[in-house]
């Protein structure tokens, strides 16, 4: 009974380990995100915020709210750049 489940359990542990090692916390290369009312909204494009260490910000409409940009759906992955506010309108 014990040996019957050993290999499937090992396969499962191997798969779980692989999931953790391939987890990409660096960011979504396809697009950036903003946090709107506690929900991550995709911007539909990868913004070029330039080089720098200042948090990248975006404005979606004239005189509209300015949002901080995130590299992925992760509140700890703020996109950094030269500090210019990107205007998407």
């Amino acid at each position: 009974m014990k040996t019957k489940f050993l290999l499937p359990v090992l396969a499962m542990i191997f798969a779980i380990g692989m999931s953790f090692t391939s987890l990409d916390s660096a960011g979504d290369p396809n697009q950036d995100y903003i946090l709107q009312d506690g929900v991550f909204m995709p911007l539909g494009e990868e913004l070029n915020c330039g080089n720098g260490s200042i948090v990248c910000r975006v404005q979606l409409e004239p005189n509209g709210q300015i949002y901080e940009v995130y590299d992925s759906v992760n509140p700890s992955v703020l996109k950094k750049g030269n500090g210019d506010i990107k205007k998407l309108y």
Binding site: L7, P8, A11, M12, F14, A15, I16, M18, S19, F20, S22, L23, D24, D28, F40, S72, V73, N74
Partner: peptide, 22 residues
């Protein structure tokens, strides 16, 4: 084949759950 499917489905499921918001 069974073990390969265990690896495939557990890997895919756990990867999705680890980055669930995305």
């Amino acid at each position: 084949i069974s073990y390969l499917f265990i690896v495939l489905f557990v890997y895919a499921a756990v990867s999705k759950l680890l980055d669930f918001e995305q």
